[in-house]
Structures are given as C-alpha cells and as structure tokens.
Design a protein around this nucleic acid. Structure first.
Length: 134
RNA sequence: GCGGGGGGCCGGACGGCCGCCUGCGGGGGGAAACCCUUGCGGGAGGAAAGUCCGGACUCCACAAAGCGACGGUGCCGGGUAACGCCCGGGCGGGGUAACCCGACGGACAGCGCCACAGAGAACAGACCGCCUUCGCGACAUUGCUCUGCAAUGGACGGGGGUCAGGGUGAAACGGUGGGGUAAGAGCCCACCGGGGGGGCGGCAACGUUCCCCGCAUGGCAAGCCCCACCGGGAGCAAUGCCAAAUAGGGACCCCGCGCCUUCGGGCAUCGGUGCUUUGCCGAAGGGGUCCGGGUUGGCAGCUGGAGGCCGCGAAGCGAUUCGCGGUCCAGAGGAAUGGUCGUCGAACCGGAGCGAUCCGGGGAACAGAAUCCGGCUUACAGGCUCCCCGCACAU
RNA sequence: GGUCCCGUAGCUCAACUGGAUAGAGCAAUCCCCUCCUAAGGGAUAGGUUGCAGGUUCGACUCCUGCCGGGAUCA
C-alpha cells in the first residue's frame, strides 16, 4: 500500500500491470510509437491520463501460424512482459507486443527478454527526455 | 518364426520455484461500489479441427384440407431423442483365408443423350465375305460325232437370302458345343444365362425348388424424372435485460372509420401464407404515449446434460436397453495451461558386438475448448494389448 | 463462433444440355520495320482447369472429401 502511493513518479520502481482487452485500446496504440524488437514488434504510447498503471496487450495475427503457434507466441510474450515491464516500463503508458511468424516461438527466452529491454530503452531514451523535460 | 486381417487403449512421465484463468471461503480497509491479502479445489483433445449431417435450446412465422414447388434420403430389418450414424442380415465384387469394399429403388410411366470411328447405335444394319439366281457369257478344264456343241467352274453387272466370320467401337439385339441348312440364323437340341407363374423357407431384402416361355425390347437416373419416406425459417454475433445517444420508420391507446341495420350483425373494396376452397385477421383520417437507424459498453444465456466416467448384475448374436452403487472433471470473452531447472525418457544419428545388448548424441506426432450433446470426415511420431487367418518348422 | 460465395496461361475473362485441339485480349520471347525506342506487322512458347477420389465410353462441366482465398452477421 505504501508502494502504490509512492510509485507514480519513478520510472524504474515496480508498478502494477493491467492487460488491455478492448479493441479501441489497440487502435489507439496503432497511432503511437512502433519499434522492432528482434523476435517481435513493440508498440508504445502515453495514455495521457492520471492512472499510473502500465497497460500491456498482446497481438498474434494468423500470419504467425495456427492456433497452437499463436497461443504459444502470446504466452512467451506475456511471460517476458511480466518479468521486464514492471521495472523498465513507464507508468501511465500502454504497450503492445506483436508476435512474428517463426521468431517469437523459436528464440531463446533470455534473448527474448533482452529484445524487450533494448526496445524499451530505445523508446524511453528518446521520447521521455523530449517529452518530460519541457 | 515369417507374413497378413480385425477390435480396444495410450498418446511423453515425476518433482521444485515463479506466474495465469476460474469456483468456494477466511482476514483487513471502505458508507457502498470495490480494493488489498490469504486458504482449499478445478483447469484442453482423440480429434478440441473441418462445419458435412442429426438434435437440444432460443427467437420469428404458423387456421384447416387438397394440390403444387423446393431440398434431402434410397437393398431389408433393428437400435436411437434424431440422423446421411451404428448393429445384424441379403445381394454384388476382391482376397488362398481371416476379412475388406459397395450412392445397392425404378430404364416395358414418359422425355432426353449415346460424339469420333463404323455397313449399321435403338423396334439397327449389308462394307468385305458366304450362298443362290438372272444376263452378256470373256476365260479355263474335260468330253464328243471337233470351223462347232455340251457339261463344270467362273471374271463382270443386276436381283435375292444371310449375320456365323472379318473389321469399327465403351457398347453390335444372349454365351458355349452339337445338329441342321444353298449359305446361315434359337431354326432345333444340351448346358449356362434371362423372363413369367406356383410351392416351400424367411417379418423382409432374398433364397430354393417345380413348371412354362426359345427368349426382340441396350447403357446413362452422381441428365430431367417416377416411386417411397423425411423436412416451416433462422441461428448463442440466436435471444432477453440495463445504460449512454437520438432521424425519414415501427408498436400501443383513444376518437373516427364504405353502405344497410332491429346494434346481434349482414353486404362490399383492398391487403395478408406458393395456389385453390372454406375460414380468420387487418386497413382507410386525426390526436396522444412509447420504442427506435448506426455506434459503444455492461449483465444474463453459460454449463447439471437424450450427461460423462468407474464398477456390478440382467435381456439381446449385436448396436443398444434396463437396474443398482460411486463420482463429478474448463467455463474465457483481445479469449486462461506458461517460463525455468532437475531426474527419467521414444523416434532418429554415430560407434562397438555374430547377437541379445552396451556407449555417446538427440529430444517428442497431429494439434488448443468458445452454447451444449450424438455422429461422420480429415490430420497424426510412436507405443501397449486382445482375437483371428495363411505358410514353414518342431512335438 | 455462425452463415454464404469463389478457384481456368503471369493478369483479366471465355468454353452450349458432359463430346474430345481448353479459346481471346494484355503481358513474355524471337524476327521484321527504325539511326535507336515506342507504336505497328509476323511467329513462338506458356495449362497436373486448386488437390484427391468417384459416376460415365468420355468430366472445366455431375457427385463426395480436402486445400486456399474472399464477403457478411453482435
């Protein structure tokens, strides 16, 4: 409870995650940033509201494969987001991880985590300094 | 031992840590909504798939009879909630056999089609050939009474008989053998095949037997069609409720509503199911109330059901049914089963060995519930188990 | 998730009631014309008719099962 009050400012302190479920949330993300992250694609966008939670969604289209391949790709992305986003994600932002055909399921899990970390620093390294300082 | 056929079952296992979805409960905060925390339980498949059939369920439509249209099924009997599924039987085909396969009603109800080739293709036909006859009688042979005559054969042309043979074709109007004939032909006979009728067995499909008929009447119905049987339409994104938002349409109520009226009703017009008949309902102008197109969110439907699974008993050849006991086993809604580590591990690869096997590597097929059931079909690494058939060897 | 529709040369379309060589335009290749290119003319090649079975003498066409693509419904 003490954490919940003290976190909204910090970038690296743990924040709560929430899964995106509505179509309009994904449509909004399509207008945000889009960064390739090795085995997948990362979309990120500042929600511009007062809620400090981090939103995260997962997309795997039919290009990824059949239902088994799509589910497997989403599970690995979900696990990666669970491990990385509370530390490196920024409060008040939404993220979407988009699976790719062969790579998302085949990549080593540690490499998958690195992909996500690099992509996040790429997003916030450029945008945050510009947006927040002025 | 080798090869083959049929049925049933499994389809990676165990554990640690960190997570996800969901049911029930405890504790704390809060007026409540809700939030935080914590305990116990459950959490993908044999196909969850394709959406090809059949239902449950929901909404819409619905007066009855007759006729018609459309779609489906198609040997017979049984099972089932139902089926195009399953079981048993029949018939046909394949296999030495176990066993497997089959859209398997009707082509004397009718219409249509059968290209090319071929003489002829649907109550067919005469090309070659065979036989016969006629004409001119070339020509050949033989005989004689020898410039010739006669007999036989016969090129060529015409008429007739014939469908056995050749050839064409997917298919040529029963097949084989014999008799018969001018040559032939069910022309006649035997057997096979076919048709009709009777008897017997069977619920039936059908089988069997006797008698009669020499027996002209293809193939296609997954062409139209006929016969028998079945079927109202749509689908959980159905449907119901709540909230936000509001047009040109819709619903309900009141008055009025063609003519006559004894106020019960009668007679008209128009519209309403594919058509007809009978019947029923609605409509004509004005006012009021409510809903509403498109977009978006929440709740219900939502998992307890012709239930599944396990065990026992009974009926039946079997599908299946009946009885008893136990048990409950996913319920999401951008959609839950994952990540990682350890032990064991099939296929496969390399090496050693005559071999059983051993050592090292390797790391698990097809595939993910979306309202729920019964089937079918399709995909599938590998494994377990039961029964049966053939061959070889031994006893 | 449900429902419906469509697959023919590289592309856009034909092919009768099932009847034999699956045809046309554009594109492609080669040649002619031109100083060169375009246009024009001539010739050529290109097809398991989405795949696999079945019915039929014969299938692009009829039937069944798969595969791929598209549309639509709250």
């Amino acid at each position: 409870m003490d954490d919940a009050i003290s976190t909204p400012e910090g970038v690296s302190s743990p924040a709560s995650l929430r899964v995106l479920q509505k179509r309009r949330q994904f449509l909004a993300l399509n207008r945000g940033l889009r960064v390739p992250a090795g085995a997948f694609l990362l979309q990120a966008r500042d929600r511009c509201d007062d809620d400090p939670v981090i939103g995260v969604g997962f997309t795997c289209s039919r290009k990824v494969g059949n239902a088994v391949a799509r589910n497997r790709a989403k599970r690995r992305l979900r696990e990666a987001a669970r491990l990385v986003l509370p530390d490196l994600g920024q409060a008040g932002w939404d993220y979407a991880l988009i699976g790719r055909a062969e790579a998302t399921a085949a990549r080593e899990f540690e490499a998958l985590l690195d992909d996500l970390r690099k992509a996040l620093t790429k997003v916030h390294g450029s945008v945050r300094t510009k947006g927040r300082k002025t």
